[in-house]
Structure formats: structure tokens, C-alpha cells
Design a protein around this nucleic acid. Structure first.
Lengths: 97, 97
DNA sequence: ACAATAGGAAAGTGACGACTTACCTATCAA
DNA sequence: TTGATAGGTAAGTCGTCACTTTCCTATTGT
């Protein structure tokens, strides 16, 4: 849903996470925590980042694959292209007949 | 800057307002109120819509021009294009998982 | 087995945001 | 001027969201 995508993008920490995944795909939760702390100075707990990842995954912006005790997260830009065409292309076939 | 744009897009009512302005540019506050009420069944007060327009204008998504006692609102899609290119990798192949 | 590691799932708190109510200013028509 | 229209602003309420704390499950290494 578009609602979930926009709400997911509303938080600056979640946007930072997307930035991290653009730079290097397939990171684990602990890796994301470490990089956010060192590169951006974000002093958030692991649980907080984990909750953000849940939101991003529910919005379809992040896909995760489990491998043993590791869970790797990949960026999925597909929902982004959908929300853009809503206002950038006025003559696109809209869902409102 | 980008923060304001994402926060502005986070609210469904504000996205509806953008939809309305895509369909017909240069509407006044009362026109937007009427169309949101009739077409989308939104029972919001004029003040609420006015506050949303302030948010949209602060984000640069809406430009307004005053003319007498009327204030016309125009859509500005420029901030949208900026936020899209942030995560959409330009040289990524189409079917990359 | 045991402990360390990677992750998940609660409840609780504090702050921010959306909305209403009420009141106020400015412009136009009679 | 008077009254109607178009818009602006402030206080207050209520819900939502981000975050922490605490505790729990699952996998791996020794």
C-alpha cells in the first residue's frame, strides 16, 4: 500500500537505513546498527533499528532472507517508482475511474 | 528540506490535496475543501485543510499566489524528483533481485 | 552441554502531529 | 457602512509513533 510506503519514508532513521542498503546490500541488523552509529552518529538501540526494519519490510522497501542465525536485508526500490508516477505523470492511468 | 517533503507526504489528506491539484491547478482553499468533501468524503474543517496547505507550501510542493481575497494554489513537483533519485540507482539493470 | 551471538516480542513513556473550536483580519458587493 | 465571503491564527484534545527497557527464542562455536 502507498500508505505504508509514505509512512515508512517519513522517518529520518529509516531513510538512513535505506541509504546504507543502497551503499551495501544484504546487511544484517547488527551491521546496520554499527554503520549507523559510526557513520551517522546515531545512538539508537538494536531493538529500535529492528523495529524500523519491520516497518521498511512491511512497506516492501526492504526484503529479508534468513540464513542460519543471520538475517540479511536487501533494498527493494520497486515501491518507490510507483509513488512517484502519482504526481509526476498527470496523464497516467489512475485507479480512480 | 527533504525532511519537510517526506513529512508532508506522510499524511493521506495532504496526498489527496496533491491529487486534486494535479487534476486542476490553481484552486482556492474553499474549492479544495469542497472537492475533498464531495469526491473523497472527507469531512474536515476548512481550518484543517488550511493547515495542510501550509505544510505543503513549506515543503515546496505547493506554490500560492494571492489575488484580492482569493489565494490560488499550484502544484510544484520539483521536490518530488529530488527525493526519488536518492535510492533509485541510475545504472542498475532491470531484473536485478 | 554451555555460553556467546543474532534476532524477536512484549509494555511503558514522551513527544509530535492532526484536528476542532473559537476568534480575528482582509476584501468585495449592496 | 453593513454584511457576506475568503482566509489566518491560537489553544486544547486525542491518538499515534519512536524509543527504551526487559525478557525471550534460535543458532553457532568450543
Amino acid at each position: 500500500m502507498a500508505e505504508d510506503v509514505f509512512k515508512a519514508l517519513a522517518d529520518p532513521t529509516r531513510r538512513r537505513i535505506l541509504d546504507e542498503l543502497v551503499e551495501r546490500d544484504g546487511q544484517t541488523l547488527f551491521e546496520i546498527c554499527a554503520r549507523l552509529a559510526t557513520k551517522h552518529g546515531l545512538g539508537l538501540t538494536r531493538q529500535a533499528i529492528g523495529q524500523h526494519l519491520v516497518v521498511l519490510e512491511s512497506a516492501g522497501l526492504v526484503r529479508s532472507r534468513r540464513q542460519g542465525r543471520y538475517k540479511f536485508h536487501d533494498l527493494n526500490t520497486e515501491p518507490l517508482e510507483l509513488i512517484v508516477t502519482r504526481w509526476l505523470r498527470p496523464d497516467a492511468p489512475e485507479g480512480t475511474p
